[in-house]
């Protein structure tokens, strides 16, 4: 997982940029250099998109819509004769590249991770801003930054060694047995590897970014909102739920979306606990799943062996789908957080 700097630093840089662009320096060398740097960033994103489009074009033609709608992923019979041809693109006989399982796995694991992470992150951020004495704030913030710096594979190992057995032996059997009547909670308890474990690991991994963003949104809000409510005889809890949170609603939605974007693209830890499902959709929250990011890694080796190259290009097409989704989520998040800043 990347560090916090891009998002949090990004929002600070944007605020700082306002007086800067109005200052006479904007026409000078410094202004030109920063414009170039900003331009390069944008250019990189556009180039990456263009490259992915160019590289995956044969796969896009071969797969058509089935990359989003089909559940079968099969690179074809590499020892057979002839080839399977769609829209003029040839692949191994019988090759099918349906990405629905991975798309569903990606979205479900990230969504469920939000269900776990959002209440916890809100609680932590509110505590930091309104409850913690000054001297405890700095160490707490440092700890959160530290959490963001732990390598993904470490979370994955913890997930494999501790979380998965716990889910498989205790949580899943208990839940499926007692709450099986609720949709998506009944049925096969599974081994522990699956959607639930993936969502927990993801929730822990996106906590730092979510806490940091919500904390910054709360700090940007004038403290007078909280004081106004308290002065009207509210309890601290009422001040938070009736005045503070409603007034930063869009900022919090933005924070959730930023974290959601991270969860969508998280690879290694998910790969280690998600159960590596293929060709089957999840039946309940304990079913094995697979995500786009994880499947690109786990299927790469066999895809490279496809002489027609369509398998590799189809994996790249999956990556393109993930890229577009993440870009969309992040853009919405930025707009939401910016809207919040402007309203004060």
């Amino acid at each position: 997982m990347a560090s916090l700097t891009p998002t949090v630093g990004g929002s600070r840089a944007r605020r700082a940029a306002v007086p800067f662009s109005q200052s006479p320096a904007s026409g000078t060398l410094a202004g030109v250099l920063t414009s170039i740097a900003a331009g390069i960033c944008l250019l990189l994103v556009v180039l990456m998109l263009l490259f992915l489009l160019w590289y995956t074009w044969p796969a896009i033609r071969y797969n058509g819509l089935s990359i989003l709608s089909d559940i079968t992923w099969n690179i074809g019979n590499q020892y057979g004769t002839g080839s399977s041809i769609h829209n003029g693109v040839a692949a191994e006989p019988g090759a099918e590249f349906g990405g629905l399982v991975f798309l569903v796995g990606t979205l479900l694991s990230a969504l469920l991770a939000m269900v776990f992470a959002v209440p916890l992150a809100l609680g932590v951020a509110l505590t930091i801003v309104y409850r913690l004495p000054e001297r405890l704030r700095l160490p707490t913030n440092a700890l959160i930054e530290l959490m963001a710096g732990i390598p993904s594979v470490v979370y994955g190992l913890w997930g494999t060694i501790v979380l998965v057995p716990w889910v498989g032996n205790h949580v899943a059997p208990f839940v499926t047995h007692h709450f099986g009547f609720i949709p998506f909670l009944g049925g096969d308890a599974g081994s522990g590897n699956g959607l639930f474990a993936a969502a927990i690991v993801l929730a822990i991994m996106v906590m730092p970014i979510m806490v940091a963003t919500v904390r910054d949104v709360l700090l940007a809000q004038p403290k007078s909102i909280y004081e106004a409510s308290m002065a009207l005889g509210s309890t601290s809890w009422q001040a938070v739920t009736h005045a503070v949170l409603p007034s930063v609603r869009t900022g919090i939605v933005g924070a959730i979306l930023v974290a959601f974007g991270r969860a969508l693209g998280e690879t290694m830890a998910v790969l280690m606990v998600a159960g590596n499902a293929i060709n089957i959709l999840p039946q309940n929250i304990f079913s094995p799943i697979n995500t786009i990011a994880a499947v690109v890694v786990s299927q790469l080796e066999s895809a490279v062996s496809d002489a027609s190259g369509v398998a590799q290009r189809s994996l790249a097409e999956l990556a393109l789908v993930l890229f577009v989704i993440s870009l969309a989520v992040n853009t919405i998040a930025r707009v939401a957080i910016r809207g919040q800043d402007r309203s004060h």
Partner: peptide, 10 residues
């Protein structure tokens, strides 16, 4: 009543 008007964003 505070120094700066502080209505809720409602």
């Amino acid at each position: 009543v505070f120094q700066r008007p502080n209505p809720f964003p409602k």
